[in-house]
């Protein structure tokens, strides 16, 4: 289960960002792509484990899931996909290797104490 490793990185990166700004964290906002290979429930559990005994113990991890989105050259448009089993455009049936969104694994915001 690599979610524990990922969670450990989240805790450490969030703490670095908080320390650099001189703030105390209450919640971490994470953007998670459908194709990031990370399972949400495992990550939430991993976060609890990884934050124990750190300044982030007791803080929340809020996850925004980002669907897989390709650019379809035939339709000349960005198209959101339902699953992650195929990069085929649901409108025209063409395959596209151009992934625009869905691989994210990034901290986008910190909720902090006043």
């Amino acid at each position: 289960m690599h979610e524990l490793s990922i969670a450990t990185s989240i805790v450490s990166v969030a703490q670095q960002e908080a320390a650099a700004r001189g703030v105390e964290v209450e919640a971490v906002h994470l953007r998670l792509g459908a194709l990031s290979g990370v399972v949400v429930d495992s990550l939430l559990f991993g976060y609890e484990v990884a934050s124990q005994g750190t300044p982030l113990e007791g803080t929340r991890l809020l996850i925004e899931e980002v669907p897989l989105t390709i650019y379809c050259p035939s339709c000349q448009a960005e198209v959101e996909l339902e699953g992650i089993q195929s990069l085929r455009c649901p409108r025209c049936g063409e395959l596209s290797g151009e992934i625009r969104r869905g691989k994210e694994l990034e901290i986008v915001a910190l909720e902090v104490k006043d």
């Binding site: 990185s9 990034e106 901290i107 986008v108 902090v112 104490k113």
Partner: peptide, 18 residues
């Protein structure tokens, strides 16, 4: 409840590895 104070950050979780 007070609206929380939110700071925008942009940090790749695996940046150290990358």
């Amino acid at each position: 409840t007070k609206t929380p104070r939110i700071l925008e950050v942009r940090a790749n979780v695996l940046k150290d590895n990358d």
